[in-house]
């Protein structure tokens, strides 16, 4: 019996860490899709680029300086990637989702191939910052210290994103642009700047998540599509353009992923897509789509 409880505590903590990381990845994807109608299938590749930055800068000999440098480089890479994708998808703004998906999927494949060429085909493990490589005791269970830091950082980022989007004038502008960008332009605001800002910040969050997640999700070929699929499931379940929806969905998917793997490892993917199917059957526009309204 005690064994089940121990598995439970560890699975819940793992789910929390994965869920918060997924939120940081997915919130940018959700806002970009909700606001610009651009389905950015290169978002997973942007995350992986951040993870490779961590391996390249930190590698197997971690220092705090190295970790901070990796975060700095990843933010710059994220800004460049966001800017580049923005320029590429701009001309397709009024075209179909299929055309945008083909373009960004092509970008994702090219980036993934370039990353493989640059960093090789091997799984690259990244060590946590000094002092966080060991375990601490949580309710009598040994638990990796770095994952607790990840939970704290992820929670901090989630709270910050929520406060900025839901409680500030800048966030009101983002919500208004998600709901009806034409009316944002009609009050004299250049909506292109809002869209560019969200695209770039969303990509910077993805590379940041890539660095923070690299000790758990070791960078390797194929990780980009794993992360992209998880993020897309979060966006679909949470509802497009909803920060609160993305948070709830990410925490839910985190728990399904980790508890599923701990208890029924053969059925983990089934649980993930089964829950997606249930949400789509009951609430086709996502759990929080009601708050977005039916403007489109």
């Amino acid at each position: 019996m005690a064994n089940w409880v121990d598995i439970g505590v560890i699975a819940v903590l793992n789910g929390l860490a994965i869920g918060l990381l997924l939120f940081v990845v997915a919130v940018g994807l959700s806002l970009v899709f909700g606001m610009m109608d651009v389905l950015n299938l290169a978002h997973g590749a942007v995350f992986v680029a951040g993870a490779y930055v961590a391996w390249w800068v930190v590698g197997g000999s971690p220092t705090w300086t190295g970790w901070l440098a990796a975060l700095g480089v990843a933010l710059a890479v994220g800004a460049l990637a966001g800017g580049g994708l923005l320029l590429m998808t701009g001309p397709l703004a009024r075209r179909s989702h299929l055309e945008q998906a083909l373009l960004t999927l092509g970008v994702a494949l090219v980036v993934a191939e370039l990353l493989s060429l640059a960093f090789g085909e091997d799984v690259r493990s990244v060590s946590p910052p000094p002092g966080l490589g060991g375990t601490v005791s949580v309710l009598g269970n040994a638990y990796p210290a770095y994952r607790l830091l990840l939970i704290a950082l992820g929670a901090g980022l989630a709270v910050a994103a929520h406060v900025v989007v839901e409680r500030t004038p800048l966030g009101a502008l983002v919500r208004a642009t998600v709901a009806d960008r034409d009316m944002v332009a009609a009050v004299g605001i250049d909506a292109r700047l809002v869209r560019a800002g969200v695209f770039v910040v969303g990509s910077m969050l993805a590379t940041t998540a890539g660095v923070l997640g690299s000790p758990i999700y070791s960078p390797r070929p194929g990780l980009d599509s794993t992360i992209l699929i998880l993020a897309l499931v979060v966006v679909v379940i949470g509802g497009l353009g909803s920060v609160r929806g993305a948070l709830v969905a990410a925490l839910l998917i985190g728990q399904i992923e980790s508890t599923g793997r701990a208890l029924l490892s053969d059925l983990a993917s089934f649980l993930l897509f089964g829950s997606l199917a249930i949400v789509l059957a009951l609430r086709p526009r996502g759990l929080f789509a009601g708050a977005i309204g039916g403007q489109h």
């Binding site: 004038p169 009101a172 502008l173 919500r175 208004a176 998600v178 709901a179 009806d180 034409d182 009316m183 944002v184 009609a186 009050v187 004299g188 605001i189 708050a291 977005i292 309204g293 403007q295």
Partner: peptide
Amino acid sequence: ALVPQGRRIWPTVTVREHLVLANRR
């Protein structure tokens, strides 16, 4: 300025925030 058909106010934005966003643009 336009007051469009169907009003097209932003459903997830408060009244106060509507006014702040439009103010003096």
